[in-house]
């Protein structure tokens, strides 16, 4: 069984149908990029996986549990699914260390010492061992995003969702965040990312999924997808990048 299985997902915001029947399987250890134009439904799709968006129809299974099912506690589901956002969304009244420690302490009931040890390890992993006592507004965008990644990792999720994690960053700060994501991919973390960094996606991902107008048009190995676009939508998307 796949780690994440999406089947026939439909999602509408009022009259507007943004997901029109999505099928997708994500295997353990796989690194997947969702690509496509703005408004194609990539972020919405990502957000359905941890229940931030409810779906109108279809089924989502994560680690064998059905999302949105009455019997599946959404909080239990989210223990398996971490997420990093475009706007970092760090808690401004906590230091970097406290941001990372908070959820393990209050959700997983870890002791302070235990949570601190994990948090320090995660912050060191993203290269911020020397910034632990800084507050979010004392950090650059790239540093904030790396804290956000450490915060998600401290919960030991089985899959990490990355929603345009470099889109809000100044160009010179993009690489430090991508380096962390690349390291996670190399360590075997299951990653699903919405990204506009095509070169990065090409280098790091096992699979590209191209979305257009709420549908998956093509998916496959990056080289294959970029070299031989089968649909005109992807051809024009790839052409637009060149």
């Amino acid at each position: 069984m796949s780690l994440v299985e999406l089947h026939a997902i439909h999602k509408s915001f009022g009259e507007l149908e943004v997901l029109k029947g999505i099928d997708l399987k994500i295997e353990e250890g796989q690194v997947i990029a969702l690509i496509g134009k703005s408004g194609s439904g990539k972020s919405t799709l990502l957000r359905t996986i941890n229940g931030l968006e409810t779906i109108n129809d279809g089924t989502i299974m994560v680690a064998g549990k059905k999302v949105g099912d009455r019997d599946t506690d959404v909080l239990t589901l989210r223990l398996n699914v971490g997420m990093v956002f475009q706007q970092f969304n760090l808690f401004p009244h906590y230091t970097a260390l406290e941001n990372v420690m908070l959820s393990p302490q209050v959700v997983k009931k870890q002791s302070k010492a235990e949570a601190k040890e994990v948090a320090e390890e995660m912050l060191a992993k993203v290269g911020l061992a020397d910034k632990m006592m800084h507050y979010p507004d004392q950090l650059s965008g790239g540093q904030q995003q790396r804290v956000a990644i450490a915060r998600a990792l401290a919960m030991k999720p089985r899959v990490l969702l990355c929603d345009e994690v470099t889109s809000a960053l100044d160009p010179e700060l993009v690489n430090e965040v991508l380096a962390v994501v690349r390291q996670l991919a190399e360590e075997g973390m299951t990653l699903v990312m919405v990204t506009h960094e095509m070169r990065f996606a090409r280098e790091v991902c096992d699979k590209l999924v191209f979305m257009d107008q709420g549908r998956i048009h093509e998916s496959g190995a990056p080289e294959e997808v970029f070299a031989n676009p089968k649909t005109s939508e992807l051809a024009s998307f790839v052409g637009g990048l060149a």
């Binding site: 941890n50 956000a148 915060r151």
Partner: peptide
């Protein structure tokens, strides 16, 4: 900001 609440949700907080 709504994003902070979503971040907390995604960290499995009730």
């Amino acid at each position: 900001p709504k994003g902070q609440i979503e971040a907390a949700q995604s960290l499995a907080m009730n």
